[in-house]
Design a protein around this nucleic acid. Sequence first.
DNA 1: ATGGCTTCATAGTGAAGA
Length: 262
Amino acid sequence: MRIATWNVNSFKVRLPHVLDWLATNQPDVLCLQELKQEESQFPLATLQQAGYQAVFSGQKTYNGVAILSKLTPASVQYGLPDFADEQKRVIAASINGIRIICVYIPNGQSVDSDKYQYKLSWLAALHTWLKNELATHPKLALLGDYNIAPEDRDVYDPQAWAGNVLVSDSERAAFCALEQLGLRDSFRLFDQPEKSYSWWDYRMMAFRRNMGLRIDHILLSEELAKECTACVIDRTPRKLERPSDHAPVMATINPRHMTLSS
DNA sequence: ATGGCTTCATAGTGAAGA
């Protein structure tokens, strides 16, 4: 079973890239962030023709998340519980016995911004929820744009970024707190190339110079981590015309005792 | 070099992203 995440930075603009990527990679689940479209604009029929079901939560201009799946998603949840939020940043569903949680964690803008405080509060609410969620769903995957580079090796120039939003101590502590719930960073379960990133600024020819950050992650509960056989960042779509600034990340899980029909 | 690009909302520029 392959599960993936991709911040598409406008699903309207990126739909052709997503359809190509689905056809080539055949993930069983793809979590999307930054749809930037209202739900009435969501291209459900097109995705169904491509063999995918979808659940989604959208709004105009900003945010928006979706889960695309070959199997029909069940028990769908929208948003963080007990955290009032206009911003559409969370959708969760059960697929093939796995609790799939798709998140678009706030950016935070800068450490002295109100948005940074919102980000930290948001992360605290996520932590509280996941603690409960893991108790009821031992097979759980948390996929998305975390807007956190967990370690200096996830940053192209750690000195230049030191203390900045996306790498600050409080954000990294929040990431560690998720790991302390028993979640594992699937990318780091395996040997990986040095300077592996999932986002590159559109400016400064950052992609060509590999000036990036690794901020898109797939965290797996212990039960799933045991059965994870690979995790890769696919840089291919970042090279296309009009790319998203993020690359997709995909993990392969081979659950024993589970069969995936079509 | 505190910008540099891209998107969306809008109808000339501004906000936001990371």
